[in-house]
Amino acid sequence: MARTTPTPPDSPTIDAVGLAERVARFKARSLKAASKVSALKLALSMIDLTTLEGRDTPGKVRQLCRKAVRPDPADPSLPHVAAVCVYPTLVRVAKDALSGTKVRVASVATAFPSGQADLAPRLDEIRYAVAEGADEIDMVISRGKFLCGDHAAVFDEIAACKDACGEAHLKVILETGELHTYDNVRRASDLAMEAGADFIKTSTGKVSPAATPEVTLVMLQAIQDFHARTGRMVGMKPAGGIRDAKTAVTFLVMLRETLGPAWLTPEWFRFGASTLTNDILMQLTKQRTGHYQSARDYTND
């Protein structure tokens, strides 16, 4: 392993007031109906359909996989979602259920959601998930170490996880809700990208606040600067708390205006969500039929 901790702290500090102001402007954008429909379809295709509960069963995961492949049985023209995200022990189930489709299987690993375990078993968990067939690994960083200022340890663990992933893509969860400041979010983003992350991701979904537009914008700007400096594209995944279609579209506007059209694909941007899917389907049906929909008409994962 030839990687070393980058010379930071060269991460810039974040102007929280300016950030809030800019986000408020993104939220105020109005969209024409036609653009809205294409944005909703794009958002749908970017979803990592997620179930991360202690009560998950193979049956539930299979059901989720069917939904991933054809989100709305009444409208086969809609795209499939990007991936299904599950715990490592259910990766095999998801992989089998999704064989022959282009939906990928993502697995959380590394003592998700706390990350409070020794590095060796966390790496083993990644290798296990990859061996079971995971295409993507969502790891959590050690927030405790990060907040102690032990950035080198965090860098090393991300780098080690990247190696353990092999061919699988690595998404690094910063758990921004526990990092307290935007400066920390920015620094953790820079650290993760330097250490080899393919994606940076806001949250586990187990801590609130999760993917606020503000932290997402901080991370998008970090990706932009990293790309300008190194030429390498890194993906972004806001996760947790994005429940309605309107919020999702705001994120897409933000993405388009920060990183540009190259990132506007499921390859470079994902939503970690479960309830968002139904709201997007309801909005798409509303656009098609003109009638407001009932949540009761959509499958409850």
């Binding site: 003109g290 009638h291 407001y292 929909q293 009932s294 949540a295 009761r296 008409d297």
Partner: peptide, 8 residues
């Protein structure tokens, strides 16, 4: 009209 068509 919206009330009459609303499915919820």
């Amino acid at each position: 009209p919206t009330m009459a068509t609303h499915k919820d």
